[in-house]
């Protein structure tokens, strides 16, 4: 018995069957691709949340608003103390700079501010707080202390909002995971039923193979190859669809993406997503075929 001859036979039979009855295979590929598009979109959404949290986390700033008559030496002392306590760089922002930023951020509406004679914005100190200094309520304690200084009018930091965002992100991810598990289970059932439909049309072939002495492994191999090929093609199609969708969102809804502070781009590790979809597609195809062909092997 030649292993090479058998391998050639398996591949030839698998591809031959795909050519002979393309319709059932297209249906199988479509159902697999649908599942993989769902997976891709779920991964993409989760990636956006991660990127959003990371980008916001990187921008946590500790801002101290100074009174108009704040003594320069005291402010310098405070600057030194903040650097020492947080390990981050302290940047002093003038009222003019602050107004400039505000005008820029407001866009067209900001033009109304340009004509103002008196700038109501105070001097402030901005500290870019490194991640290490944000933990364990350190910022809260620091904010409390700084607020007590006579020449300070207020302290603002994004930690609260960030903590809430991280919590929302965790909750969304958990909900996504549960939803994905349900969709995945449903998909496996649909894929397996579709493949069973494809195999049902060839039950006669399986029966004859068994009657002339074909082992279960021999009968199953071409179907497994078909399942793997279907999974791979479905992965390619779904990757293309998800990629195209991301590019479309970037080009036509770039503002929305920019609003999420992701630099106008959908954040994704494309090679990784492609590999995951390929692995999942081939795995699903193999599993679906294995389960589907099993019930026809009893001859």
């Amino acid at each position: 018995m030649s292993t090479r001859a058998k391998s050639v036979y398996f591949v030839r039979t698998a591809l031959g069957s795909m050519v002979r009855s393309p319709f059932v295979h297209v249906i199988a590929i479509a159902s697999l691709a649908l599942a993989l598009v769902g997976y891709g979109l779920a991964r993409l959404a989760s990636g956006q949340l991660d990127a959003l949290v990371a980008s916001l986390g990187g921008q946590v700033e500790f801002t101290v608003y100074l009174a108009p008559d704040a003594p320069e030496d005291k402010v310098k002392e405070l600057e030194a103390a903040l650097t020492q306590r947080t390990g981050g760089a302290v940047h002093r922002v003038s009222p003019a700079q602050a107004l400039g930023r505000l005008v820029e951020e407001l866009g067209d509406q900001g033009k109304a501010l340009e004509g103002m004679n008196d700038n109501p914005l105070p001097w402030s100190l901005e500290v870019a707080v490194p991640a290490a200094a944000r933990e364990g309520g350190q910022l809260e304690a620091l904010a409390e202390k700084v607020r007590g200084l006579s020449f300070v009018t207020g302290v603002d930091y994004g930690q609260e909002a960030l903590a809430r965002l991280a919590m929302i992100s965790r909750a969304l991810k958990l909900a996504g995971l549960v939803a994905f598990a349900l969709v995945f289970l449903t998909t496996v059932i649909i894929v397996s039923a579709t493949l069973q439909l494809a195999i049902f049309s060839r039950r006669e072939e399986i029966e004859i193979q068994k009657l002339v002495g074909g082992t279960d492994r021999f009968v199953r191999m071409p179907f497994l190859i078909e399942g793997a090929v279907q999974g791979a093609v479905a992965a390619l199609v779904s990757f293309g669809l998800v990629f195209a969708l991301a590019r479309y969102v970037e080009s036509s809804h770039g503002d929305a993406v920019a609003f999420l502070r992701l630099g106008g781009q959908v954040a994704a590790d494309w090679p990784r997503l492609g590999a995951e979809q390929l692995g999942l597609g081939v795995g699903l195809g193999l599993l679906g075929s294995f389960v589907a062909v099993r019930r026809f092997l009893k001859v």
Binding site: M1, A5, Y9, R12, R20, I208, V212, G214
Partner: peptide, 21 residues
């Protein structure tokens, strides 16, 4: 099998044994 030729139907038995094409 109606989807195979006469020769392919006959060869089915040999395919199972791994006989070269």
């Amino acid at each position: 099998l109606p989807t195979r030729t006469v020769a392919e139907n006959v060869g089915f038995t040999l395919d199972v044994l791994g006989v070269p094409r």
